[in-house]
Design a protein around this nucleic acid. Structure first.
Ligand SMILES: [Zn+2]
Ligand SMILES: [Zn+2]
Ligand SMILES: [Zn+2]
Ligand SMILES: [Zn+2]
Lengths: 164, 164
DNA sequence: CGGGGGTTGTGATATTATAACATACGCGTT
DNA sequence: AACGCGTATGTTATAATATCACAACCCCCG
């Protein structure tokens, strides 16, 4: 629960930031993580992550696939789904259920139980950490939580301003 | 385990209960709600709700469709999707995003911001109310939440026992 | 050299969802 | 009764999302 008021690195995605640094850091960390775990961070996988990292917007599997195909990789669905699966299995990307779409993880490496804020206007997706609010309810029900999906749709700060 | 805790109107779905009463009540309430709001609770719509109410398990749109077709209603996807859409629009059913499936609402009428517990073994889905944990994070980020999707997957009390 | 595991590629197919249009029905007006 | 109108239902067709099954490849190791 390190969710302070000022979110030092709490919620990424809406705030203005040096995105090329953000991207480079994520790729470096992915590289490192895979090396440590003995996973092969192959060209398709790397390129897939790069594509997701281009913006903090969720992409459909077929969008990713089209981009991969442009770059000379295979053009059939399993190519994209496998790469995305690899990234998700290893905490480098997440699936946004409401959108049937995928985003790069904004807190790779960190322990994960992500929650997402999705702007319905501009499509930006921000990832928050450490929101695990179900425990009380779950305990009361005798339910053993294994995975959570927590997604909020609404308006991001910028789109909110525009609307006003 | 606090399994026996009697959850007055907390979590419905896992606890043993008089399900035929549960079903009748839900149908009666739906009837009433529609009457009040001037909505037509037509045969397909009613039958769709009945089908969802048969168990506290989420059904795919095509499962529902097959059941409707058996009963003499149309057999093409829009028939099911429209009925399900009506029920969702009017707070009588919910979509479970993780499963691309639908359940009858367990707290119809009540103000709604539902959270779901989904048993990965038996498929039971329980609906909890009033879990709105994102507000703090959202405010900090300047995000205006409009809708939330909160779903937890795990083991329900019964399947948990079996596993032990 | 000869496997064997992991990775990539492809064709085929399954599953989920919507668009577009036609028909039917209830209902108030003429 | 006849008409116009809105809502609901039904059908055809197609879109969007996802997985299966199998072949080819590549790299490392024995
Ligand atoms: Zn960035
Ligand atoms: Zn993450
Ligand atoms: Zn926005
Ligand atoms: Zn019940």
């Amino acid at each position: 629960m390190s969710q302070g008021s000022t979110d030092p690195q709490g919620i990424v995605g809406f705030a203005a930031h040096d995105h090329s640094a953000c991207t480079r850091a994520a790729l470096a960390l992915a590289e490192e993580t895979c090396a440590e775990k003995g996973l092969s961070f192959t060209p398709v996988r790397r390129r897939t992550l790069e594509i997701l990292l281009e913006s903090h917007v969720a992409l459909g599997a077929y969008d990713v696939l089209a981009r991969l195909a442009e770059d000379g990789f295979g053009s059939k669905p399993p190519v994209a789904y496998r790469a995305l699966g690899f990234l998700m299995d290893n905490g480098l990307a997440h699936r946004i259920e409401r959108l049937n779409a995928f985003v790069a993880c904004a807190h790779p490496g960190a322990a994960h139980d992500p929650a997402f804020f999705i702007c319905r206007k501009c499509g930006a997706v921000a990832e928050a950490q450490g929101v695990t609010p179900l425990d009380a309810s779950a305990d009361a029900a005798g339910f053993a939580v294994e995975k959570t999906t927590i997604e909020a749709e609404g308006l991001c700060p910028l789109c909110r301003e525009e609307a006003a």
